[in-house]
Design a protein around this nucleic acid. Structure first.
Lengths: 351, 351
DNA sequence: GATTAGCACTCATGCAAAGAGAGTGCTAAC
DNA sequence: GTTAGCACTCTCTTTGCATGAGTGCTAATC
């Protein structure tokens, strides 16, 4: 059977209506709304065809039709009209994203918040995985008798610090030497490569021999490695979880519970996100591999930090969603993030 | 009317049963369970008395009785037997709390996680408010052409850093001088006092005059103040939110939604917590001042960091909860946190 | 051949009635 | 003071029934 022009129009109308109302739509209503001069009976015939082709479903015999996942897929791929965001909205988003200009993670979190606010869905943002990020320097600074701060800075400007509590005291001058030695040894190394045992052992031996600080090292080294590991971790921000309560599809305690319990498993969701390709990716209902997500649609897009490290941003909601709007929005926001996180480096010393 | 021994026994039995089953309990069941050799009829009379006194309620005429808030209050104040935590549980908790020994906030977050896991309720932890915390030193470190790291350390060992992106470049040597000047000027000041304008203005003027860095200062000062402000903020961790789905009282979409939406308002909840006195505080149902919490019970306890800064830890759940267990647990955990966060300072320099 | 009117049929939904079950309150007897 | 007995109340579940929205099919129409 062929998807005639008219069938497409009918399908489109059903999708539009259903996305708006969440109610199955019948032939009579559709005939009135469609204004094509065809009677409900004709529409019924067309709808029966569309159902046979797999674009429509029936909740029960005497109910109207609802679009299937296949219909949404068709919609997203060919039917959907794309509109750029209205200029006011663009500037509003830009302003709010720039409020936390110099805190990368805050900006990313804000992006998720904004996204959920605008779409009224659940939005999330994954901070970039900085795998091949090189270490710039390591600094050890005294806090009090038994604590020092370990500060690590990478070439990309990522900074991490940990307060390390030591079992023994330390000597401040030696701390400075140690900082320099560590920096000298590790500078330019990729964070992930430092975890390898032989490199660590070598440095450890060098330093211990040089300054007779072996007692100190015992406390310090494990913490140092843990901090590095932590720097490789990504962070997942999730916003608007309770928005699902306002979505008719989830007007059912069990469904809402299921959804929330799944989203609470951040590790698992992060993995799902990690496995998605770059660019704007849309998976609709059954297209999702995870069982619990088979009645959701997931839209993700990627942004870049310094044109290099890839983070993700997106939305999860019922398959019935305003794909056109959400896609435009997600695209706009990731583009914007990528721009914000681009090192300009064009201004130079002045004062 | 008087609360006779027998009335107390009956009340206790009703509470015990209801806490366990969440079902109203009738005279016949109670008579069998109670084993006092009194008939259902007698129990009915006693229950009628207890209801008149305000300790019991009736969901409807032909239902059993349920304890009122007043009954729980009596239970907590006088009826409840306190048992110390079993030793295995104590050690298990201690071990898990110490897993993140040197990250204060992680330990606190873990405490909330544990608390929610053990009680199957929603648990939360508030990091201490370090109001009168004195500044120890300020360090500015270069990252790249247009970014510097601002690092602030307080006397209590709290460390905060921000990457500040500057509109103009800077001179590394001057950065060092600036660090020293800022430290010299602010050391020993309380964080909150630094926000006052005149002090800031004075320092700003001094530095600008001294090193002709006014261009730099324009970018730097607002960020510096923001970072300080951020250091005064507390963090609220909340765990086990979805546990409410397993509680019969919330087997109702509207109630669950209400609860979750309320708990999402972290600012508001933080304020509620801030207003609570020190030590273990229990507020039951109507005793809570917030409208949305009038069918919940809130149990909070305080812990101390360095014997000084006060943080809070607690649980929120239905009024029907195992008060004895939860209270013991919360108490044990806060005691433990206070110990963990006590500076020992007894070991001295060695190597 | 496509379109349409007409009609029987299906199913969800809402409502009322009926019966079962749990539990109470009261009275009268112990 | 305690208890047995009984009428009464209220919830909950089941059943039947009417309603309405919508379909599928057939036969007539364009």
């Amino acid at each position: 059977m062929e998807l005639t022009e008219r069938k497409l129009k009918i399908l489109q109308a059903i999708i539009d209506d259903f996305v708006f109302s969440a109610e199955p739509i019948g032939s009579r209503t559709l005939s009135k709304k469609l204004d094509l001069g065809i009677s409900p009976a004709t529409i019924r015939n067309e709808m029966a065809d569309l159902e046979e082709m797999g674009y429509l479903t029936h909740p029960h015999t005497s109910a109207g039709r609802t679009p299937s996942d296949k219909a949404y897929r068709l919609y997203v791929d060919t039917l959907m009209e794309r509109h750029p965001l209205p200029v006011e909205e663009q500037t509003a988003i830009r302003t709010r994203l720039n409020e936390n200009f110099n805190e990368l993670n805050k900006t990313i979190e804000k992006a998720a918040t904004l996204l959920s606010e605008i779409t009224n869905l659940t939005a999330f943002a994954l901070t970039p995985k900085e795998d091949n990020n090189q270490l710039k320097y390591i600094n050890l600074l005294p806090v009090d008798k038994t604590s020092v701060v370990l500060m690590i800075v990478t070439e990309s400007g990522k900074v991490s610090n940990t307060v390390i509590r030591l079992r023994s005291g330390y000597d401040q001058r030696k701390l400075e030497i140690l900082s320099k030695m560590l920096t000298y040894n590790y500078r330019g190394r990729e964070l992930s490569s430092i975890q390898t045992i032989d490199l660590v052992k070598k440095v450890e031996a060098d330093i211990a021999a040089l300054s007779a600080m072996s007692g100190f090292m015992e406390n310090f080294m494990p913490e140092f490695l843990r901090t590095l590991e932590k720097m490789l971790d990504t962070e997942l921000y999730m916003e608007g979880l309770t928005n699902i309560f306002d979505i008719p599809e989830y007007n059912d305690l069990d469904k809402a519970r299921m959804f929330l319990k799944m989203m609470k498993q951040k590790d698992r969701f992060t993995e799902v996100l990690d496995n998605r390709a770059d660019g704007v990716i849309i998976t609709i209902g059954e297209e999702n591999t995870d069982e619990e997500m088979k009645d959701c649609s997931l839209i993700t897009a990627t942004y870049r930090v310094n044109g290099k490290f890839i983070g993700k941003l997106g939305v999860i909601g019922p398959t019935r969603m305003k794909y056109d709007e959400v896609i435009s929005l997600v695209e706009f926001m990731t583009d914007n993030l990528s721009n914000t996180f681009q090192i300009t480096g064009d201004t130079d010393s002045e004062e």
